[in-house]
Design a protein around this nucleic acid. Structure first.
Ligand SMILES: [Mn+2]
Ligand SMILES: [Mn+2]
Ligand SMILES: [Zn+2]
Ligand SMILES: [Zn+2]
Lengths: 155, 155
DNA sequence: CATATTATTGAAATTGAATTTCATTTTCTT
DNA sequence: AAGAAAATGAAATTCAATTTCAATAATATG
């Protein structure tokens, strides 16, 4: 008995909402809804975060050996353009994607030993950044802040 | 009359000190002092900051068409290993090098329109970063912080 | 439902920066 | 001066990212 009786878990709900958002974006831009896009978006939205196109491709191709890397790659780009994913490049220079969650902005702590990526959000920090930029007459559009070091488990 | 009579300007002094530092590093590691390394290091140390290997190669090859790109590339790596340069990768994903100045650490404001790179240092920020990391039991080794937006001239 | 139109797919090719290879040259040591 | 070891530079290689293109699938229209 694997099927969930009664109401769906919160995660599934969010995923269907997001899939709806993709469909809207596609229709609006004159693009098409395809089986591949559905599968890829579904797997991505439910996947662990910070995946590379390669990562996701490997996961998906286990079950769907007819879906090619290029389509996974292009779908991740599409999700980014649709406002459902962000591209991130950390020190290893690989492009990673993460679903955009309602909890908008966050930055990252990256462990040099185990590779764990921890997310954080700090309002004081964001304010201080604005203040610094102001001093230079600089208007911030985006920022990148990453800490590299050793996580609790690794140090 | 281009030659400076009397004492040398501060910049030149620093450069000769740095060149001495390279020579020490080379000898210590059993490496050799070459004409190319001398020219490349000299040009780099006196160059504008945040240059790519390609940038520096183009500058140098105007006067020295016998110095190849590979050697420029390798010398920048060598300078980095010797503690005289740092590698930086901004949003365009190109590896840039900057001389390490006595004023150690700084972060960057990068203009999305004109590409200007402004440096800043903020002690309060650094302290806050440590504080945030502490909350996660994380020990910071390095960090990356960049603001992307519009500089005073461009906005 | 058939067909036309247009976008999508996926394998393969291309790009471009970074890095390595290797034959030749240069430096440094005896 | 001769030998040992490292450096040089052109060319080759790597590898993720991106593009190309012929075949296929999705939608719109009648
Ligand atoms: Mn994240
Ligand atoms: Mn700098
Ligand atoms: Zn760790
Ligand atoms: Zn500007």
């Amino acid at each position: 008995m694997k099927k969930t009786a009664g109401r769906e878990p919160a995660v599934s709900k969010k995923i269907s909402e997001k899939k709806e958002q993709i469909r809207l974006h596609l229709k609006q831009k004159g693009f098409k809804a395809t089986r591949q896009r559905d599968i890829i978006a579904g797997e991505f939205l439910r996947s662990g975060e910070h995946v590379t196109a390669e990562d996701l491709y490997k996961n998906i191709s286990r079950k769907h050996d007819d879906i090619g890397f290029t389509t996974v790659y292009r779908t991740l780009k599409l999700l980014s353009r649709s406002g459902l994913a962000t591209e991130r490049v950390f020190a290893d220079q690989l492009t990673r994607y993460e679903p955009i969650s309602s909890e908008s902005h966050h930055d990252h702590l990256i462990c040099l030993k185990c590779g764990a990526i921890t997310e954080f959000e700090n309002l004081k920090m964001e304010r201080l950044q604005e203040k610094i930029a102001d001093e230079f007459g600089f208007h911030i559009v985006t920022h990148k802040m990453e800490f590299y070091g050793y996580c609790r488990a690794c140090r």
